[in-house]
């Protein structure tokens, strides 16, 4: 019961692993454009990884950022759910096979939900967040 209540307050945290910023802008629109308003689901973008429940990863995971991303991801308290936003974290996307790309991200991190697209529509991201919330609830045991 408490867990069901808690699942209605998923706080989001973005990790940019070398993204072109396209997906980040789409993430921003979900919060800042009144039309999409992700806050009505109880979501909030927070500035600190310690406050996060749902991690949104964008970008193809460049070699330079790999260790830092893994470190930030480790900082996030359990239970957490990881969402890959855009084709880059899912498969490498248009950067796949580049000399500077260490990804895809699921080689190093357990991803729960994929939201492919280049970039995905804001609605698709919201759909991903809702799926992530269900996965989060399942992980909390509720």
């Amino acid at each position: 019961m408490l867990r069901k209540l808690a699942a209605r307050s998923p706080w989001l945290y973005r990790i940019n692993t070398g993204s072109c910023n396209g997906c980040d802008v789409e993430l921003l629109t979900t919060a800042c454009i009144p039309r999409y308003d992700v806050e009505r689901l109880g979501c909030r973008y927070c500035g600190s990884p310690r406050h996060a429940d749902i991690v949104l990863i964008t970008g193809p995971l460049t070699v330079r950022l790999k260790d830092k991303v893994l470190r930030v991801w480790e900082e996030i308290p359990e239970p957490k759910v990881t969402v890959a936003v855009g084709i880059c974290p899912v498969s490498g996307g248009v950067f796949r096979g580049g000399y500077s790309i260490a990804g895809p991200v699921d080689k190093y991190l357990p991803i729960d939900i994929n939201v492919p697209g280049c970039p995905p529509r804001p609605q698709a991201i919201i759909e991903g967040v809702i799926k992530a919330r269900d996965a989060w609830l399942a992980r909390m045991g509720g």
Binding site: R3, L5, A6, A7, S9, W11, G42, D53, E75, P77
Partner: peptide, 13 residues
């Protein structure tokens, strides 16, 4: 309130 309940169930690092 939901935020508080959520935070109460989270791990403290």
């Amino acid at each position: 309130f939901l935020d508080i309940v959520k935070l109460a169930l989270k791990q403290t690092v």
